[in-house]
């Protein structure tokens, strides 16, 4: 396989042809934020948080875009940062007040990105009140909070591609899209075998370990 040489944030990088910009940047020590991408999975490029400037009319999703010879990639221009803040604003405008993941294990990736990007006032209408998407408590193992779902596709790939359990899909279309089990049956009545992969790969409070629900993380200073 041939190699390609490109520049990422001014740094010259040589990688095998077909390497994604995200992988090339990571190997060069440059951190491009992501929500939908997980290195264990085939990238889908849907959260768009990894958008980078490659000199085109539109930005490129670094997790899916292959490096090209002579490409000039800029990963954090003011414009790119502004677009990432807008994307985070949009996701947070629909987010529930309490994330089960943040409350129990403190590792909600959306909230971490929001802190990192200094999100404070969200200019968009609150979707969690106008059209709540509901919760599913039918499973004995995993709690589903559709309001915290950002449709990153990680649970779907985890279920179908990593575990080959073939239970999860996106259901519906547009703003009404949700994750669904089998023919949109409650999780606890579906063919789900409760392997836990979906909750393990979920970056938000959408799919969480039921046993931890209600347990709040307390920092040492507070005890």
């Amino acid at each position: 396989m041939t190699d390609v040489t490109l520049r990422i944030d001014g740094m010259s990088v040589t990688v095998p042809a077909g390497t994604t910009i995200w992988d090339a940047a990571r190997d060069a020590g440059i951190d491009i934020p992501v929500l939908c991408h997980d290195p264990r999975m085939a990238p889908v490029g849907v959260c768009r948080l990894c958008a980078v400037d490659v000199g085109g009319r539109t930005l490129a999703a670094a997790c899916v875009r292959a490096c090209e010879e002579g490409m000039e990639v800029r990963t954090s221009t003011e414009q790119v940062q502004q677009d990432r803040r807008t994307l985070l604003d949009l996701l947070l405008s629909d987010y529930p007040d309490v994330s089960r993941r943040e409350r129990s294990t403190g590792d909600d990736a959306l909230l971490a990105q929001a802190r990192k990007h200094g999100i404070s006032n969200i200019p968009y209408p609150d979707g969690s009140r106008a059209s709540p998407r509901g919760e599913d408590h039918s499973s004995q193992v995993i709690t589903v909070d559709h309001q915290a779902c950002i449709l990153c596709d990680r649970c779907i790939r985890g279920c179908n591609e990593l575990q080959h359990n073939d239970v999860l899909t996106r259901s519906g279309k547009g703003y009404r899209t949700r994750i669904a089990f089998d023919l949109d049956t409650p999780m606890g009545e579906s063919t789900c075998v409760a392997c836990g992969e979906c909750a393990a790969v979920c970056p938000t409070g959408a799919l969480t370990n039921r046993a931890l629900d209600g347990i709040a993380l307390v920092s040492e200073e507070e005890t």
Binding site: G45, V46, C47, R48, L49, T86, L87, L90, L91, S93, D94, Y124, P125, G127, I150, L151, R170, G172, K173, G174, Y175, R176, T177
Partner: peptide, 14 residues
């Protein structure tokens, strides 16, 4: 909107 990517799915609705 098909709902695949965040900007179109959420942004057009807002």
């Amino acid at each position: 909107s098909c709902g695949k990517c965040v900007p179109c799915r959420v942004g057009s609705h807002k």
